[in-house]
Design a protein around this nucleic acid. Structure first.
Lengths: 177, 177
DNA sequence: CCTATAAGTCAATCATATTGACCTAATTTT
DNA sequence: AAAATTAGGTCAATATGATTGACTTATAGG
């Protein structure tokens, strides 16, 4: 059973009797909801949603990413990306420049407004997790991250992001052309 | 950066230089996708989706749960639950009995077919996570579960589930009436 | 010139979910 | 016994996020 404790001492629950593995779906379903709840509330007033936050997140980490690269990272179709991208542009959170090395490519960047919002959203999520890691102490952060990385690392979008990040943040020309 | 490793030895990444907290959204977004991918593929052939799996999951853990209780656990409206519930009944995965203690209540149960499917789905998810926990070793499972429980425990649906589980699995009469 | 690629768009459809209104049946309250 | 409440169901409209498929424009390159 998942039982929350008020006392710090009994923080570590009985992991033997208690079959952790029987309630994995609960941990992911509710965990994900908690993780996205605050950012969702914050962006609501701008008329944007989860998908827009994800887009801001990735453009923030790979400035100059192209449309095709972004949809490969997100593992969605261009039709799914097109509208939210246009909305973010209209609302002044992102801008795009035609690539000099190839005018077919559109490179995406955050505006100051976009940078500020993305920072706020990331900050809230980071502090929420930091609070938990601090409370639990020990190697909880490292262990949790290790497990989540194992899950993430098998995704094509994550792998593509990794490669992009390594090249785009170390070279001037985004496509090595 | 999130970088997967092939070598077991270098499994534990550098958590100091590497700012884990800067890529939390990636861990959740891709992690959740990996966790749900296999069950999604398995249930596709029955014409059911994620929401149906969640329903099967909770009925399996609280047999005899009523419709209102279930939608409180899932944190959705009755309109959102109604159709998938009907589909699961039509496809022979669940059945409902009118409660003897109050004929307004409909108690939900899995059929043998539903029980089998739910077991298969849970098994796949459990084995996927077990593989990771075994690979990483140490206290990775306990630590990961602790963190996810912290996130989950704040949700009203999780709290309600916890209470339901404690009463429904220890008493004959589901509503203590 | 031909072909491929990047980006955009239109249309139809699906899955998931919401708010709001309204209904029936059963139970509880007054 | 009548009135109010509760559990469950349903209809309609709408929103969000996504898909497949078809088609267009602009650019690049052999």
């Amino acid at each position: 059973m998942i039982v929350s404790t008020a006392k710090g001492e009994s923080e570590r629950l009985n992991h033997e009797d208690d079959n952790d593995l029987n309630e994995l779906l609960i941990l992911f379903y509710f965990g994900y909801r908690t993780f996205t709840e605050k950012p969702n509330q914050m962006i609501e007033k701008y008329g944007i949603q989860r998908v827009h936050h994800r887009i801001l997140f990735f453009i923030a980490r790979i400035p100059g990413i192209t449309v095709n690269e972004l949809l490969t990272v997100l593992e969605v179709t261009k039709q799914a990306l097109n509208q939210p991208l246009r909305q973010l542009t209209e609302k002044g959170f992102i801008l795009h420049k035609t690539a000099e090395y190839d005018k077919r490519y559109k490179q995406l960047y955050l505006t100051d407004r976009g940078l500020n919002l993305e920072k706020e959203l990331s900050k809230v999520q980071q502090e929420q997790m930091k609070t938990i890691f601090t409370k639990l102490g020990g190697n909880h952060r490292e262990a949790w991250v290790d497990v989540m990385k194992e899950l993430s690392s098998v995704r094509p979008g994550q792998k593509f992001f990794k490669d992009l990040f390594l090249t785009k943040t170390t070279k001037t020309n985004p496509n090595n052309k």
